[in-house]
């Protein structure tokens, strides 16, 4: 049995990740995070402390019986469950992922529901499945009514966690959520994983296309995409904060002060592949070469630190001249 193989003959995995700041005035301690992510009373929250604080909720399922969006208008009905999980990084970032494994062609009739519950996170097509068209359909645009809406499942889970009473709803700064939609087709036999595209679309949507060998578990694929989404969010948010601060303009002290939340809450979060399966970690290198995620991040961080240093010197000089 393969890792994709909670399904009989899986042909693709896809999902959608919502990423945002935890709406709380300070970073949430590990115990509170565990409480926040306890979506089920009988299952543990998985918690890591190294190399950074990282917690994953149990998976919760949503039943679906609908069409998959497909380029070219093919209509494929699928039945099964969407698996959703929430992840908190460093008690500061909240992500919710909804994902499915799509099994190969199946019989034309729906099974008893317990059949699908024995394959959590798998949907089975009724009849044929045009994989390429479905992959394109999933990546393109928004779902029409009656077509699988993974984003809505992720959004509901995010909202459920975000309402938790442990959160004071006072985020230290304003930021926007991002959405990352990903599709992974099976890699050809003998070939390793690959990242075929990473696209920044408008209104906060990112799309990622992957090829993954059958041995990669859906959870590992989700963790990779959560990692991509997290770092993309950090970069996007820091770029916006620096822009808004008008760093380097006349009113330098104001600008530097406005960046304080970034220093307090964001700069230490950059840690690509901290919780990514090692066989998938090399996919990051592709993004490091082009466009160079870490290069851009470091440049921004350096710029903020230079400005802080300059400010410190100015303040010191002003203090001396005041004597």
């Amino acid at each position: 049995m393969t890792a994709w193989g909670r399904a009989a003959d899986p042909v693709l995995i896809c999902g959608e990740v919502r990423t945002g700041l935890l709406q709380h005035s300070e970073s949430l301690p590990a115990r509170a995070v565990a409480d926040l992510l306890r979506l089920r009373p009988d299952e543990r929250v998985r918690i890591s402390e190294r190399p950074n604080g990282y917690a994953v909720s149990p998976e919760v399922l949503t039943g679906v019986d609908c069409r998959l969006p497909a380029a070219g208008g093919a209509r494929t009905r699928v039945v099964g469950t969407v698996a959703a999980r929430a992840v908190v990084t460093e008690g500061r970032m909240l992500q919710a992922t909804a994902s499915i494994v799509v099994a190969g062609p199946g019989p034309d009739v729906r099974h008893p529901w317990s059949h699908y519950l024995a394959r959590p996170g798998v949907v089975e097509p009724l009849g044929k499945l045009p994989e390429r068209a479905v992959a394109d359909g999933l990546l393109a645009g928004r779902a029409r009514p009656g077509e699988l809406d993974l984003g809505a499942v992720a959004e509901r889970l995010l909202a459920r966690v975000a309402r938790h009473r442990a959160l004071d709803q006072r985020a230290p700064f304003k930021s926007r959520r991002t959405r990352l939609r990903w599709v992974a087709l099976r890699a050809l036999d003998g070939e390793g994983p690959s990242l075929d595209s990473f696209t920044l679309a408008e209104d906060g949507l990112r799309t990622v296309e992957l090829r993954l060998p059958a041995r990669v578990s859906p959870a590992a694929a989700a963790a990779l995409c959560e990692d991509l989404a997290l770092h993309d969010w950090l970069l996007t948010t820091l770029v916006r904060m620096v822009e808004r601060s008008r760093l380097g303009s006349a009113d330098a002290p104001e600008a530097v002060l406005s960046l304080r939340p970034a220093v307090d809450h964001l700069l230490h979060l950059w840690m690509p592949t901290a919780h990514v399966d090692r066989t998938l970690a090399p996919l990051w290198d592709v993004l490091e070469r082009e466009p160079g995620f870490t290069r851009q991040w470091q440049t921004l961080v350096q710029r903020i630190r230079d400005q802080l240093a300059l400010q410190a010197i100015t303040l010191r000089r002003d203090a001396l001249t005041a004597h």
Binding site: P41, D42, T62, G63, V64, D65, C66, V79, G146
Partner: peptide, 25 residues
């Protein structure tokens, strides 16, 4: 251990045809 409550949290409603995930069951 609240066994029944834990089992209730494991109920996943069988979706009616047309359930696309956009609304909770």
């Amino acid at each position: 251990t609240a066994v029944a409550e834990a089992v209730e949290s494991r109920l996943v409603d069988s979706p009616a045809p047309g359930s696309d995930g956009s609304r909770p069951p």
